[in-house]
Amino acid sequence: MVKQVAIISGGIIGATAAFYLSYLKGHESVAVTLFDEDTGQATKAASGIISPWLSKRRNKRWYALAKQGAELYQQLVNDAQLSANAYCRTGTIVTRKDHADLLDLYHEAEIKAAQTPAMGNVELLSSAEVKRRMPILTNPPEGVFVSGGARIDGQHFVAELLANAQQENLAVVNQRVSLDGSGRVLTEQGPRQFDRIIVATGAWMHETLKPLGLSLKVRPQKGQLIDLLVDMPASWDNMPVMMPESMSDIIPFNHGKLVVGATHENDGGFDLTPKEAAKNQLFENAQYFIEQLSKAQITDMRVGTRAYTDDFSPFFGILPTMPSILVGGGLGSSGLTTGPMIGYHLAQSILSSHLVDWNHYTKPIGTYIS
């Protein structure tokens, strides 16, 4: 008998779960319906960098999840035949303002790279060597290059995953839905009963779970970034991305698209209005490294809402009060890195009884939901 599975939200977790439910062994035993009304969705508004290895964060569970997430990408890209518009392994340049700190970072990278094949090669670069790899820069810093780093466009990424899954067993319904107290999905056409439900509604998950008598400890954070159109020759395609210390990420895409961001605004709540002050700050951060930029080159400003937990850690698991419902969220600013791994685990839990120990990646679900 075919199981009916619902996924609420088509962001990074929901889209990846949908793909794996259409791809992993046993996918022919499930029919999947994904409900998504993507207003404010962090993934849709995001372009980012997949390069977690040199993060300053020391949360061991987060690092295990992020490290595995970065390693999952190459397999996921191959399995789903994703285009370079969605994901491209370009390498990452990580900077430090103090030279001694940069040397410490380089030695840390060497040690990690010896045990982490996904990192690829690690090199210590002078400012001149950074300029050679990123010729768009007029004020290049020195940095550490990690060849395994990649750039990602969230909107292209989830769109291609969902298009792939729709060829198998996925139906996408573009509407906002909710749950009732018995765990049914309330749609515009009426309530629907599903065998399993994945809830991945990000900063809105508190409202999603409220009818079940549950309270979720998450808060919204506003994130804004800008797109610029820059005159770049084709020979500059696939430039590395740069993660400057205490400044906005610089993410060059092919065909002259340059992405700068994103902001981290804890007082922005669910407000999706682009702010001129944020635009100016992002532009100034970019112009520090690329002096010839003009505000006239800004083509777009994207705004999304991230979800953060009190301990800044993602979570996922099965609701103890209603085992047919699985949840995943609290991704914060690392969602493009950690989200696919969570989606994979949630999909696998529906299709297989052989699971890894999730405690390696997340605290018990009761830490965040009461």
Rank of each mutant, 00 (worst) to 15 (best):
T309I: 07
G183T: 02
L346F: 01
Q189M: 13
G223P: 03
L293S: 00
Y23M: 07
E291V: 12
A159L: 14
G183W: 05
S334I: 12
T309L: 00
A70Y: 08
S178M: 11
G268N: 05
R57S: 13
G328D: 06
L229C: 07
R96N: 07
N359Q: 12
G256T: 01
G14I: 02
V144P: 02
M243R: 13
A277G: 12
N238F: 10
S126R: 09
L272Q: 06
Q224D: 08
T138P: 10
K44L: 13
N280M: 11
G202V: 06
A286S: 01
D249V: 08
A17T: 00
F315S: 09
S235I: 12
D101F: 10
K257M: 10
E28Y: 09
H354A: 11
K25M: 11
L229K: 12
S353W: 11
G40S: 02
G261F: 04
Y63S: 07
V173M: 12
K257H: 05
S324L: 11
T201Y: 11
A262Q: 01
L186W: 00
G261N: 05
R132C: 13
L272F: 09
Q175Y: 05
S353Q: 14
N254L: 08
A86Q: 06
G332D: 04
A15N: 02
T43H: 00
V77T: 04
L124N: 05
D98W: 14
D180Q: 08
Q297G: 01
L34P: 10
T95M: 02
V185K: 04
A163P: 08
D38G: 15
G223N: 00
R58G: 14
H99I: 14
M1H: 02
F253I: 07
S352H: 09
T39Y: 14
G202A: 01
V260M: 00
G26S: 03
N121H: 15
A150D: 03
N169Y: 04
A80L: 01
T92Q: 09
Y87S: 05
T90V: 01
E168L: 12
